[in-house]
């Protein structure tokens, strides 16, 4: 009884926090009479969302699509790169520092270059999402592969296992928790990438919509856009967190 009550309370907590935040926000806007072109109230944002719903959803779905395509490429490249780096020590020494260096570049700085190559529009958004999200996947997969316990490897090697056997039987299964953990991070980064690219170089997508709204001083619409992005980000995160839990229960020893 006690523990199940407590569990449902834990599940309820984020909603409670959100409700409190929104209430405080709404009250402050009303009490301090903040004009809506500076900070619209949650109710005003909701009305804006209702009013512009078809437009917002149209742009949101484009953003979502670009994010998913970029993320898909990110997963493929990240996994392959991770396997490459994690299983060949020479590649590890060579590529790992370079990747770290690459990752410390603020990616926004790359968008103009990508625009130069791919032009304005969808390809740029996809490429930016990809560039932001493949790195954590590659690093995590490589780490998972490179940190296999030597004793476990010895057991298989003394059976005559080839390098490929080692990767298939212990490397990859061991890297799975690392991989799924990185998916959660990467999908959020992919969103960031898409929206950045859309604000700079696009004619559609939520990022573009917000730039438009900003130039026309339609502040509630901007906030509605932010809210939609946040909701999409959380939704995809939750989906991947769920998949992670299903796939890698052994890594947390069956604990909740």
């Amino acid at each position: 009884m006690y523990s199940s009550n407590r569990r449902s309370l834990h599940l309820l907590m984020p909603w409670l926090v959100l409700a409190v935040l929104l209430t405080v926000w709404q009250l402050s806007v009303v009490v301090f009479e903040i004009p809506s072109f500076i900070l619209p109230s949650p109710v005003a944002i909701y009305h804006a969302f209702q009013e512009y719903r078809p437009i917002i959803l149209h742009h949101a779905s484009l953003t979502m699509m670009n994010t998913m395509i970029g993320f898909g490429f990110g997963v493929i490249v990240g996994v392959l790169l991770g396997i490459f780096i994690g299983t060949i020590p020479m590649v590890y020494s060579g590529l790992y520092p370079v990747l770290i260096g690459f990752n410390s570049i603020p990616k926004v700085a790359l968008v103009p270059i990508i625009v130069l190559w791919l032009g304005i529009g969808q390809p740029t958004a996809i490429a930016t999402a990809f560039i932001l999200c493949f790195f954590p996947i590659a690093v995590n997969v490589a780490t998972g592969l490179a940190t296999v316990e030597p004793e476990v490897e010895d057991v298989l090697r003394s059976l005559g296992a080839s390098k490929i056997d080692l990767i298939r039987k212990i490397g990859l299964p061991r890297a799975m928790p690392f991989f799924f953990a990185s998916l959660k991070i990467s999908i959020t980064l992919a969103f960031v990438g898409t929206v950045i690219a859309e604000t700079i170089a696009s004619n559609d997508g939520i990022g573009y919509l917000m730039m438009q709204a900003s130039s026309q001083f339609r502040v509630p619409l901007m906030f509605a856009g932010v809210a939609v992005i946040a909701a999409l980000g959380i939704l995809t995160y939750v989906i991947f967190a769920f998949i992670e839990k299903r796939m890698t229960g052994w890594a947390i020893r069956g604990k909740k």
Partner: peptide
């Protein structure tokens, strides 16, 4: 190099946790 077909049991059991 590593022999093939040896049966080996180490000091610490190295069972694979995902299996």
């Amino acid at each position: 190099g590593p022999l093939k077909c040896v049966g080996m049991a180490f000091q610490n059991p190295t069972l694979l946790p995902w299996r």
